Amino acid sequence: MTDSETEQPAKGSTRAATAAAKRRRLTAAAAQVLHEKGVERTAIADIAQAAGVPVGNVYYYFKTKDELVEAALAEHTAHLAALTAELERDPDPRARLKGLVDAWVSQRETAARYGCPTGTLTVELDKRDPGGLDETAAQVIRGLLDWAAQQFRALGVPDPDGHAVTLVAGYQGMSLLANALRDPEVMTREGDRLRTWLDSLA
């Protein structure tokens, strides 16, 4: 086997790794820029700039802006999965739920500027594309509701699905108000209320 033949797989592997890294940067940038600017005000060039990728290269990975929106939603799903996996290291379901509230409150500055990443995107997509990408966005929220319901079920409280809705609605409400009032401390105060409520559950 010649030297050039032994180098080929390494070069191919390097190209594949570079392409995968570039796609990941674009996906993360899409999630960030779409959250900050919204779907209608975001241009593909904005996402390319945030990712540090030439605009022409974007189309190699994503043919349309809708595909970038889908990628951003996948990023939100992955972020939620990573967060809940980290929370599940604690054996106490009440502590997991309180940890979720802590994670929400830790993002209060961002929420005050832009609102909830998934919530704001879901509302915008529903107005723009009912029955399409809004359903994909709703799946992210359903995933959060399902996880929260599992924790309430483990706590043994009645109506775990209803409690999950109350918790997530509390988050959506406080992030909306923090954004509307440009006041991150709304998240701090309402987060304290949610923790107190969780502690009060038998």
Rank of each mutant, 00 (worst) to 15 (best):
A51N: 09
T42M: 03
R128N: 01
M1H: 11
D3Q: 13
A74F: 09
E86T: 15
K37W: 04
T2G: 15
C116T: 01
D199Q: 10
R128E: 00
V168R: 09
A51W: 08
A31W: 05
G115K: 00
G191L: 11
V39R: 12
T64I: 12
R15L: 12
R96I: 04
A82C: 06
A148C: 15
R193A: 15
I141W: 09
M187D: 13
K63Y: 07
V186G: 07
D66A: 13
E40L: 14
A43I: 04
P9I: 03
A50H: 01
D3C: 06
A81T: 07
T120K: 12
V101T: 14
R15Q: 10
E185G: 02
E40G: 01
Q49G: 10
D90Y: 02
D129N: 10
G131W: 01
S175P: 02
E124Q: 06
R108H: 09
L80R: 06
V55A: 13
A78F: 04
K11L: 14
W147N: 07
K22R: 15
A45R: 11
E109G: 01
H79L: 14
D66M: 02
A111Q: 09
T166L: 15
C116V: 00
R189K: 13
L167Q: 11
T196Q: 15
E109I: 07
V58Q: 03
A164C: 04
T188F: 07
K127N: 09
R23N: 00
T120Q: 12
G119R: 05
R113M: 08
A29Y: 04
